[in-house]
Simulated assay, not measured.
Amino acid sequence: MNTNRSVPRRAALAATAAAVGLILTACGTDESTNTAGAAAGTSTTAPAPSEAAQHNKADVAFAQGMIPHHRQAVVMSDMAQSHGASDAVKALAERIKKAQQPEIDAMAGWLRAWGERVPAGMGGMDGMGHGEDDSALPGMMDDEDLNRIGSARGNAFDTMFLIRMIEHHEGAIDMAETEKRQGVHGPAKALADDIITSQTAEITQMREMLKKG
């Protein structure tokens, strides 16, 4: 009868429909995947600027102020080698110079890269004066103070050097703390951290040296 023949036919149609459904589902999945891939491949999102490339006015002020500040410390440290300083003061002065000269070079490099002014070198008699008026910087000495240290010898030089260098370091720490609060340039903020750490330790050492006479 027709009823008996229709059963296999219905089963065949059902199987065919199921197969077609699977094919359509697979095609839909492939299309979705390809579309997502194409979207990802054509993304035009610009990369964020690197941390090293970012800077603001506080970073510029920090570098332009700390360069002459460090230069004065280097000049004072050079004096220790020729003014009858004790071995302990000479060793401290040499360590200060070795630390601060590379920092001067780094900060000058940042300023050039930013298109900013690099402070002029120190001039004046015997190289102890200022290329610019930097006396307002925290802890900086004027020409008279530097000449007074330059005229001292032996124990008198040691005492004057330590007292003035403590004040000088305290000023540098103040400048570094301002950079940490206000700056955005990653390397400058890292340098500020280093200055605070190293110069705080040196202040402690110099105070102990003064106590021992």
Rank of each mutant, 00 (worst) to 15 (best):
E167S: 15
D145P: 00
N147L: 10
D142G: 07
D145R: 01
W114H: 07
N155P: 12
N147C: 00
R117C: 00
P119S: 03
L162V: 02
S135W: 10
R153K: 14
M125H: 15
G124R: 01
G171D: 07
W114E: 05
G150E: 07
F157D: 03
R112I: 11
M125P: 15
D133T: 04
N155E: 14
M122T: 10
A120V: 14
E167N: 15
E116I: 10
G129C: 06
E132L: 10
M165K: 02
A156T: 06
M140Y: 08
R148Q: 14
M122W: 09
V118P: 06
R148L: 12
P138N: 04
R148I: 10
D133S: 05
I166L: 05
M165H: 01
E116N: 13
H169M: 09
E170W: 11
E167L: 12
W114Y: 06
A120P: 12
S151T: 12
D142E: 04
P138C: 04
N155I: 11
L137S: 06
E132V: 08
D145L: 00
I163W: 10
T159Y: 06
M125V: 14
I149V: 09
L146S: 01
L146F: 12
I149G: 00
A113I: 08
I149M: 11
H169A: 06
D158I: 07
M122C: 13
D134I: 08
R148A: 15
E144N: 13
G154I: 12
R117W: 00
E132Y: 11
V118A: 09
W114I: 09
N155K: 15
S135R: 15
T159D: 12
L111N: 02
I163V: 15
L146R: 00
G131K: 05
P138F: 02
G129R: 02
E170Q: 15
G121I: 03
D143I: 04
A156S: 01
A172Q: 03
D126H: 13
M140S: 05
G123D: 07
I149P: 01
E170V: 13
M122Q: 11
N155W: 00
D133E: 07
L162S: 01
L146E: 02
F157C: 03
E116H: 12
A136G: 13
G131L: 05
L162Y: 00
R164F: 13
M128S: 03
F157W: 07
E167Q: 14
M160Y: 05
F161S: 03
G171C: 06
M165S: 02
D145F: 00
V118D: 05
P119Q: 03
H168G: 03
I163P: 08
M125L: 15
D133V: 05
E144M: 13
H169V: 10
